[in-house]
Write a protein that binds this DNA or RNA. Structure first.
Lengths: 412, 412
DNA sequence: AGATGTTTTGTGAAAATCACCAAAAATGAA
DNA sequence: TTCATTTTTGGTGATTTTCACAAAACATCT
């Protein structure tokens, strides 16, 4: 029979499990059917080949949190929620996922479930994709009966958080409603906080962390989730006069306690600026990750910086770095100074950097450089001459600082 | 007869003028044929309709400099030199050009001429385009005979300059060779300088300008051209200890003389940084134009800035402005300060701006603000508190400065 | 070795900054 | 209106910073 012309899934089925088995037979691979909240609805049994993620799903009657989070983060679920086409997912060994193909099941404008096909030995072809679409369509009615009985409010907290972090929820009212459904009072203002651990966070550590977070009195944690070695928090910062101070205190205490009580060290905390608009959680999350990224690039200069706000001009580094890629830009002042340094075996560039680091304070800079203040003054005059730059002009100074740091980064 | 199947241009022609007339007859519009250096080779006479640019071309036996420059700048000539397809050129009244279609004539890998068709009453169709391609192909052989007699060295200076400004010449050796052909010694280092006049530069003024440039002793002008109200120069800055000082002096004298001798005022000079690599003329030109653009956006703060180098951090404004478009970014410090100002009818933001403008010099800033130094000190403490910012941290200060200026610009 | 130019350090006077305090002046709430 | 609070101004003196100048140290070249 020609499977593509006739729809093999037209026939009536007793149960969704039976239906899953039939799809599995047609496509020659294990099949799992979930509802919109990733709860297991049905799965095929004819084929005993499978992967760890599927085993966990079947045992727990739900896709593991870790897997859902990852699928949100790398964009699979957003894609599935946008389109009714099959989506191929590359294997992700870290979360026990082998190659799969997924498709969303739609009822009018809404996704009410998913079908997963695991590509154990064979890869699905274009024809299989068409079949899968037909299967998704056929599953709709069966699923609908179950769907009505399910309560939307059962949606898990962490998945909701990932929706926010990935910017999937766009309407403010919708977000607020979700919060209320989850019995959380959304604070007037919030920040996203990320703790980067040295190692991936185990479920045992997770327990300890949650305990610490729950018992913390000063800042309310609205939502949290874990992403490999990162602990991500949505923190309420209402009615606090100096929220950044408070955040700093909070992170310090947390790190101290983690070290004292559980011997977990070398945690890097970073946090976003403060927002009032819940649609901006994605931006806030991005800010926190930017801090981590810049701290990796400039460990020395950002040693004591944990917040996006305090990054200052470093906020723009990636942007400028990007725009100058390939442009072979060169700062005339720095070029001259480097040439001079080379020719005279001096170190005007280093002098300038320390001077700028120390906020143009001559004494501090001289101390750091182990030279006499007058020497520094002399050198600065030299720098102004050789580099044809006015060190009293804030704008010129800033660009110099920026270019100095960029150059430094690019040399490594 | 089917013009598209058979090539009507296969027949032998006595002269190119005769050939031009024939194309004109077939396409029903005036035709002009030029060589690679835009010298007139032949033109149709059957059709008396025409446009000012064509009249000038025929009278001067060459396409006017102004027209060539413009065609370089807006990309028509570069496109013609890349592809053998017809290119449609929109009418440009400023230079007397009505709607035209152009096509390049190729001999192997090289462009040896152009055919121009003027769309006076009718627009050329797709069929006409195909005919034009055939005509270009047929013109090749005729043109080749002339071409061999022409000397490449006759290429005009200004067109060469536009090639450099638009980055059309990519190989350094090629550029140097051109310079030598034109009997110009390329300097070791150079800058691009643009004088923006209040009005378009007339040919009478052009004479005066050239006279001034020629008699200037200190800086050698390698190339120059005029673009509407802009005078563009390629200046040699060899063997000069402080080239920027020299450039500044040069521009000042020029402007002074223009005013004194010819009563032409309000000339804005801008110049690029200094380069050694002649492939970077495009970049240098772009730098000069950036200075003009920023000066338009920040007339007050850049009042005394004429060089890209001195733009300092303002170099990055367009970039940052662009990246933040739609992001609704807001600086937490500034937000707090604005709120405070509104609530208490104070002016911490203005205070901060002046303070930063004055390079954090308390006395200067206090003078400008007409307040006591102690008052300024008090306010700065307040700013640090309210804005949760450390004004001793250069990086935070810089971002604040930048955001302050961006905000200021966006408010206008 | 000596001449020359550059760089660093030392010195002292002038200028500025800073931490105080106290008193007006302005502002806002009761 | 009063009263409390915030903001501005002025002054003082200790401390720091700045600046010009000169001497010393260093480097380079003949």
């Amino acid at each position: 029979m020609d499977l593509l012309q006739n729809d093999p899934f037209k026939a009536p089925f007793e149960s969704l499990d039976e239906f899953a088995d039939f799809i599995s037979e047609v496509l020659q691979c294990p099949i799992t059917i979930e509802d919109a909240n990733h709860r297991l609805i049905a799965y095929s049994t004819h084929d005993e080949r499978t992967d760890p993620a599927r085993i966990s799903t079947i045992i727990g009657r739900r896709v593991p949190e870790k897997v859902i989070n990852q699928l949100w983060k790398e964009g699979t679920i957003p894609t599935l929620l946008r389109s009714s086409e099959p989506v191929r997912v590359k294997s992700m060994n870290e979360i026990g996922l082998s190659n799969r193909v997924a498709i969303s099941i739609w009822k009018q404008e809404e996704v009410i479930g998913f079908i997963w096909a695991i590509e154990i030995d064979k890869s699905l072809t274009e024809k299989d994709f068409i079949l899968l679409k037909k299967a998704a369509d056929a599953a709709k009615n069966k699923l609908l009966q179950l769907q009505t009985r399910k309560n939307k409010k059962e949606e898990r907290l962490q998945e909701f958080f990932w929706k926010l972090l990935t910017g999937h929820l766009k309407l403010n009212d919708e977000i607020i409603e979700h919060f209320h459904d989850l019995k959380i009072t959304p604070a007037l203002s919030f920040a996203v906080l990320v703790f980067k651990f040295q190692e991936n966070i185990t479920s045992k550590n997770e327990q300890n962390i949650i305990y610490l977070l729950k018992t913390n009195q000063r800042l309310k944690i609205m939502l949290y989730t874990i992403d490999y070695n990162q602990l991500i928090l949505l923190v309420a910062v209402n009615n606090i006069d100096y929220p950044f101070q408070e955040l700093e205190h909070f992170t310090k205490t947390f790190i101290l306690k983690m070290s004292d009580r559980y011997g977990i060290d070398q945690i890097t905390p970073v946090y976003s600026t403060i927002y009032e608009d819940y649609q901006k959680i994605r931006v806030a999350y991005h800010e926190a990750l930017t801090v981590l990224s810049i701290k990796r690039k400039f460990p020395f200069e950002t040693e004591h910086i944990y917040s996006y706000q305090k990054l200052g001009i470093y906020q723009l580094f990636d942007l400028v770095l990007d725009s100058r890629k390939g442009e072979e830009y060169s700062n005339h002042t720095l070029k001259n100074l480097h040439e001079y340094d080379k020719k005279h075996n001096s170190n005007l560039v280093e002098t300038l950097e320390v001077f700028l680091n120390k906020d143009t304070n001559i004494n501090d800079a001289a101390k750091e450089l182990n030279i006499h203040a007058n020497t520094l003054n002399y050198r600065l005059k030299r720098i102004a001459e050789v580099g044809e730059v006015d060190l009293k002009d804030p704008s010129q100074k800033m660009l110099l600082f920026l270019d100095l740091k960029l150059e430094k980064y690019q040399r490594n």
